[in-house]
């Protein structure tokens, strides 16, 4: 008697935590990953504030050249008599020093934060979009025939072809041949990195397609686009988001490598990558121009990687609560 009552009570109750909350608790137990997550959130706020303060309410001007003030080390107070006071840096101090043209490094880093993150995020958005498009089509409509080839064969062979190119060399070729522009860089990084996502999504879709809830949805004559976008994509998205987190890190690194070879985002737009590669000529005279962006990239990319890895572990269905 009591047993039935208990069962009824248990069945009547909602689960104490939703699936997402349960996974979130697992994620939080990984201190390194959780700390990285908070660090990234702070960084996003910093990037937005930086964008506002360097673009619209110009408190920190990254483009202001003060030639007499070049190569000042970090935390130098502003004492110049030559430069008019309205051109003095904020707080009357060069917080991170100045570069070879006397530009305030702090202002440039602030501007670079939002540009670098934008490059990473847009590139990854493009690659996720293409990955879901191709992977989803191959997984859901794979059996359709076009001549003697199935759609699945066509798409997956195309993925194989793309995987055979040496990625960095391909990016470099295209970036070098196209006119230099920040949009080209984002688009090309996105266009060359969708193959992994496509494989994930295809595999997920192949198994999801056979599940009961999809059959149920189909039996209710729900349109196919709705089944795919509203019922199937959210169930396949977890591994994609994890690889996207790591993808942002890779895109930031790729941009900095391109900057090193002179094909990155062009001045006057500042990114961490091109501040770093400009600074390398002055590594002995002004090491801070190299080390500040270098370590910023290191920490941010590290945070993205650790956060992505923590999420991968937390969202791994094999890992259950309490194990």
């Amino acid at each position: 008697m009591t047993e039935t009552k208990n069962t009824q009570m248990v069945e009547g109750l909602k689960p104490t935590a939703s699936l997402f909350e349960e996974r979130w608790d697992i994620f939080k137990r990984n201190h390194l990953a959780y700390f990285s997550f908070i660090f990234l959130m702070v960084l996003f706020i910093f990037a937005i504030i930086g964008k506002i303060l360097t673009r619209w309410v110009v408190l920190f001007d990254p483009k202001l050249v003060r030639l007499p003030e070049k190569f000042l080390p970090p935390l130098t107070p502003f004492t110049s008599k030559i430069i008019p006071t309205e051109e003095a840096p904020m707080f009357n101090m060069y917080i991170l020093g100045t570069d070879e043209l006397g530009r305030d490094l702090f202002a440039r880093m602030l501007e670079g934060t939002s540009v670098s993150l934008t490059v990473g995020f847009i590139a990854v958005s493009i690659s996720i979009f293409l990955g879901i498009l191709f992977g989803g089509t191959a997984g859901y409509y794979g059996k359709f025939r076009w001549g003697f080839l199935t759609i699945d064969t066509i798409i997956m062979r195309f993925v194989d072809i793309m995987l055979c190119f040496p990625t960095f060399f391909l990016i470099l070729t295209v970036v070098a041949l196209l006119p230099p522009s920040i949009y080209n860089i984002m688009i090309i990084i996105g266009l060359t990195s969708w193959m992994g996502t496509a494989r994930f999504v295809r595999a997920e879709f192949l198994s999801l397609r056979e599940l009961d809830y999809v059959t149920a949805a189909r039996s209710q004559a729900i349109p196919e686009w709705r089944i795919i976008l509203i019922h199937m994509v959210p169930n396949a998205i977890a591994p994609v988001l994890v690889s996207a987190t790591i993808g942002v890190a890779t895109a930031i690194l790729t941009e900095s490598s391109l900057s090193f070879l002179g094909f990155g985002v062009q001045p006057p737009d500042a990114t961490w990558g091109n501040i770093l590669s400009d600074g390398k000529q002055f590594i002995f005279d002004a090491p801070w121009i190299t080390f500040i962006p270098g370590f910023s990239i290191l920490f941010v990319v590290l945070a993205f990687n650790l956060c992505g890895e923590g999420m991968r572990e937390a969202f791994n269905p094999k890992l259950k609560e309490g194990v």
Partner: peptide, 17 residues
């Protein structure tokens, strides 16, 4: 684990310098 993440996060040319 931490070191291997740090090493793939550092820009290669920065480490080389």
């Amino acid at each position: 684990t931490f070191l291997s993440y740090a090493l793939i996060s550092i820009p290669g040319f920065f480490l080389s310098y």
